[in-house]
Amino acid sequence: MYQSIKPIINREKLQKVTVRAGQFVKLDVDIKGEPPPTITWHFANKPLETGANVKIENEDYNTKVTLSETTRKNTGVYTIKAENDSGKDEATVEINILDKPDRPEGPLEVMNVHKEGCKLKWKKPKDDGGLPLTGYVLEKMDPTTGRWVPAGFVDPEKTEHEITGLEPNKKYHFRVKAVNEEGESEPLGTDTAILAKNPYDTPAAPGLPEIVDWNENSVKLKWEPPIRDGGAPITGKM
């Protein structure tokens, strides 16, 4: 006749695990108790079961969990529970899967557009991939060539950047990618092309001047205002 013993989970192998995305994680945990405890695993407040990339092997006094083809979705706290007629025990282990960051949060705003540049603004990604961001890569594309070329790199603390070196009256697309030690995120891009031009144009010419009065020292002229002000108030005449 066996002696009734409350479950005891061996926590020696339940140390924090950190691996790169795509690698596998294997937990091998011994459990004491009489009668042999019933063992269950839980993750994200749900029972963890054998599935596409999860394999659970329970036997008397031991449990094994293998995670294959890991992604950031596998990051979190895993809970093991053991229970028999004499009581129960519970323990946790943290698993961290390192990967590229999420793309920056949008929209990618384009402001202060002029003929040679503009200002871009975005938000930090929701997930940094488990590693500190090292910065943001900015790129521009000329729709006539379809090629993306570098447009700047900014520190991770910044979420805006002044773009320079645009060719006047050309249309451009822009995009930004977050970067950590694992690589670059998917890009966040502008929805439409941006025309590199000043917010105003050169005004149209005024009407022909007419002499309405004169004397030996001066001439008084009159003319019609230009039919187009170029998008900004006329500030003077020459």
Rank of each mutant, 00 (worst) to 15 (best):
K32R: 08
R103P: 12
K64F: 05
L133P: 04
V113D: 12
N10C: 08
N45R: 11
E49Y: 02
T63C: 12
D128E: 11
G117H: 01
K73I: 02
I97V: 15
I31M: 06
T75E: 11
G129H: 03
I95W: 03
N112L: 12
N58C: 11
N10E: 14
T144D: 11
V25T: 06
P36C: 01
G106H: 09
T66I: 14
K26Y: 00
N84F: 12
T144G: 00
E139T: 00
D89R: 11
P125D: 10
K26P: 00
F24T: 06
V113W: 09
E83H: 09
D128F: 03
I8T: 15
E34M: 14
I97T: 08
K124H: 10
C118R: 09
G146T: 10
N45I: 00
E94C: 01
G135D: 02
V19H: 10
T63M: 07
P101N: 09
P107R: 08
D85S: 13
G146A: 02
E105I: 09
I95A: 01
M141R: 12
L27D: 05
L120C: 03
T40L: 03
K121D: 07
E57K: 13
K64A: 14
L133Q: 06
N53G: 05
G146C: 08
K46R: 14
P47S: 07
L131W: 02
T40R: 13
N58S: 14
E12H: 06
T79E: 13
W148N: 10
N53F: 05
T18K: 08
R103Q: 15
A91N: 11
P47Y: 12
N10H: 13
P132I: 06
L67W: 15
K64S: 15
M111P: 02
E34F: 13
F43G: 08
N74H: 14
P125Q: 12
K64I: 13
F24W: 04
T92N: 15
R147S: 10
N58I: 09
V77T: 14
K13E: 14
G117Q: 04
N96M: 11
E139H: 05
H114K: 12
T79H: 06
N84V: 07
L48D: 05
F24H: 04
K140Q: 13
N45S: 11
A44N: 11
L14Y: 02
K100L: 05
R20V: 12
W41V: 00
K32A: 14
N62S: 11
E49F: 02
T92Y: 04
E90A: 06
E116S: 14
W148M: 09
Q23E: 15
A82I: 04
P47W: 11
K26I: 04
F43N: 07
T40F: 00
G130S: 10
